[in-house]
Write a protein that binds this DNA or RNA. Structure first.
Lengths: 129, 129
DNA sequence: CTTGCCTCTGACGTCAACGTCAGGTTCTAG
DNA sequence: CTAGAACCTGACGTTGACGTCAGAGGCAAG
């Protein structure tokens, strides 16, 4: 398929796909006229890339680990790298949970105050730009 | 305390503290000569700011919500905002968990392959810069 | 008083993951 | 055949949270 269809089916922009290629995350055949042609498997690949971005990995890191992720093969060094990234993700999850809990306690407190009529009287002033 | 001490005690840079002030996240008294003076409570405040950054909130958002977070009071609109941010954080946690699970399955697969002697034979090529 | 660290403002630099625009080619529907 | 959509490369713009540098003033010790 061509780049526009891949973009449509994955929900990422054409620009992003070209960027992925630039970063060696996603290869493409070329038609005689130079247009990119992707196989069906590219859809899954792009989804995977998005997942890894969502995990907070950089494109540099993804490029290093993708071959391993795709074919399930790796050197011990790559496996260590993967494990380290996994730990990173775990820590980020923990941090986020703490932050969420913090927001939760703030929320319940604020809501309770609202109900007891203790709401702020100064309106939120529109901040200068 | 002065800015250097606050930086040391919170682990954030002096530059970051000045940036927080610029973004209305952290106020400071000034000595007659113009140097910033912070109360003890600034330490907690900076820690809180870090937590909210960790939650993925922007400084703009933090500035809007901080008064509410600090004194537990808010307008209904602010409470809605908080709840929305909380949901955002929740979604991010879910995404991260998916990504982590993905990394996990890759890891176990790769490790199993390693043990069965199916490791990649082409070494990880050092990528061009 | 001077040395050396701390602090100030102002301003430009950085980095990642794209967005956007220009100027040109290619493909496809009619 | 032609209009218009889709594609190409190349290059500059954007955003957020700072880093870094310059040039100047402040503060404690000896």
């Amino acid at each position: 398929m061509r780049i526009g269809e891949l973009a449509g089916r994955t929900g990422v922009s054409v620009r992003a796909l070209r960027y992925y290629e630039e970063q060696d995350l996603l290869a493409a055949e070329r038609s005689p006229s130079g247009q990119r042609r992707y196989p069906e498997s590219a859809v899954d690949r792009v989804v995977l890339i998005q997942q890894l971005y969502a995990a907070g990995l950089s494109s540099r890191t993804i490029a290093e680990l993708l071959p391993c992720v795709v074919d399930g093969r790796a050197t011990p060094a790559l496996i260590e790298r993967l494990a380290a990234e996994r730990e990173q993700v775990d820590r980020r999850i923990t941090d986020l949970r703490h932050a969420r809990d913090r927001l939760d306690s703030v929320l319940t407190a604020a809501t309770a105050n609202l109900r007891t009529g203790a709401a702020c009287r100064r309106e939120a002033a529109p901040r200068a730009r």
